[in-house]
Amino acid sequence: MENVDYMKLVYQFHKDMLANRFTLVYEGEITHQITKAFTSLTENKMDSYSEDASMKRKVFHVMVECLQNLSKHAEDYKVLNGKGYSGEGIFIIGRTGDNNEDYHILTGNIIQTSKVPDMEAFLERINQLDKNGLKELFKKQMREGSLTEKGGAGLGLIDIARKTGSKLEYNFIRIDDKNSFYTLRTTIIRNQHI
């Protein structure tokens, strides 16, 4: 990018964030420390306008699972000092709904193009299940799965779908033969009876 007017760009970013009701946008390395910092920042913010306890719990839960997915599954993850993982990605949380009553969390990261079909099939499978189906899948995965060396249990996405009661929105953009960009949007709807 040449001849960029950075002063205008900053103002444009500011306007875009407000227009899209994004309250936190981050691009870069996602570590456990970042996960803790973002969740506590969001909790404090929700406390400042006395957000409902159940909404707070759901937002916290979905944030942790989304951030841990990024730190563990993003294609270019690194092992940090022998323990812990970090991955590169984009993380966004914002308000949505007609009266800002709902929240959504958006993530994006690079995955291997060869892994896209399996990932897509898994997301589709989750989206086809109802409340009871999700519960059974969660229980089955918990019983039959085992923790990977990275500490993943394969439960995060199923759990997000259960806790939010909303369908997972996702997209894969092919970058080249090797890499694709995976985006996920999860919406936490107020008073969702699930």
């Binding site: 719990r57 916290f60 839960h61 942790v64 699972e65 841990q68 918990m142 019983r143 799965g145 085992s146 923790l147 500490g151 993943g152 249990a153 439960l155 995060g156 759990d159």
Partner: peptide, 12 residues
């Protein structure tokens, strides 16, 4: 009062 999904597997 809170546990993530990886912990839920360990609890089981």
């Amino acid at each position: 009062d809170y546990f993530n999904t990886a912990s839920s597997k360990v609890i089981l």
